[in-house]
Structures are given as C-alpha cells and as structure tokens.
C-alpha cells in the first residue's frame, strides 16, 4: 500500500527511537538495540519498526561554542552550537540561541529547517532559553 502521508506537510520534528522489545531509547537510531539486540527495520516490513517519538522541549545545556569559522553556506560571521541533555537522558547537538550561555542552563529545543548545507533542507535543533 502506498503511504500517501509522505506528501502531507508535516510539523517539523526530529525523532528519537524506542526499541519495541526493551523500550530503550536512542538518538539517532542505531540498527541494533545495544541492550536486547533487537534489529530496527526502517521499512517496517520484515520486522516491526521501532517507535519514533519527537525529541523536543525542555533540556539542559552541557557545552557550547560560538563558531567564527563557519563552513561554506553560512553567510554570517558566527553561529552558536551546543550539546544538550533531555530529561529522558538522550542528548543531541544543534544550534544555540542564548544571550549569555552557561553550562547547565535550562533550554527548550525546537526544530527548524536549515538550507545552509548542500542538498535538500535539513531539520535542525534550535536550543533557546527556557
């Protein structure tokens, strides 16, 4: 059956994945669960696909930088990036928007579309002040 939902305009989300066997959570998704060795099947045909769930909302800043030597595609002098931890223990890297970043500060993660990098638009995390 054709999945016509692929043509719908969807809310921008980045997904983490939950192992259907042992409920371990991952971002990004591996092919095998590190705990129970259950295999992910992206097609969902041969094996049950893992449960995707949006990764967003409250998080904590672990470390950050302001990069002045940006790669091609960024037509601005600098951009901040950070690594955050979500309450479920998952971590992610993305852009940071904060006036005075401090490690350990509370942030909120949302998803935006980025066209800086070559190829189709990419979904990126933006971490901003809570």
């Amino acid at each position: 059956m054709i999945d016509f939902s692929v043509y719908e305009t969807k809310q921008l989300e980045i997904y983490a994945y939950r192992c259907p066997e042992c409920r371990a959570e991952y971002y990004p998704a591996p092919m095998l669960c590190a705990k129970c060795h259950c295999r992910r099947d992206p097609s969902g045909i041969v094996h049950k696909d893992w449960d995707p769930f949006p990764l967003e909302g409250a998080c904590t800043l672990l470390t950050w930088t302001r990069v002045w030597a940006l790669p091609e595609g960024y037509d601005r002098p600098c951009e901040m990036f950070g690594i955050v931890e979500f309450p479920n223990g998952l971590r992610a890297a993305g852009r940071l928007e904060a006036a005075s970043p401090v490690m350990g500060m509370a942030l909120v993660a949302r998803v935006e579309e980025s066209t800086e990098r070559p190829g189709p638009p990419a979904k990126v995390f933006v971490f901003s002040e809570a």
């Binding site: 990004p28 990069v67 030597a69 940006l70 790669p71 951009e79 990098r117 990419a122 979904k123």
Partner: peptide, 30 residues
C-alpha cells in the same frame, strides 16, 4: 578554507551532526 571545513565535517553523523551545522572546530571547541 570554508569548503575544506565543510568537507572534513562530512565525517560527522549526516543528520545529527553534519546537518545541524557542526564542524570539527565546533566539536573541538565544545
């Protein structure tokens, strides 16, 4: 230089790192 920076950044995870805009200097700095 910024194309070279981009090229080296392709060794990161395509969606979770490279696509986010992260480069090796960003990882080194964090």
């Amino acid at each position: 230089g910024w194309k070279a920076t981009d090229f080296v950044a392709t060794l990161g995870h395509p969606e979770a790192e490279y696509g986010m805009g992260l480069t090796l200097p960003a990882f080194g700095a964090m």
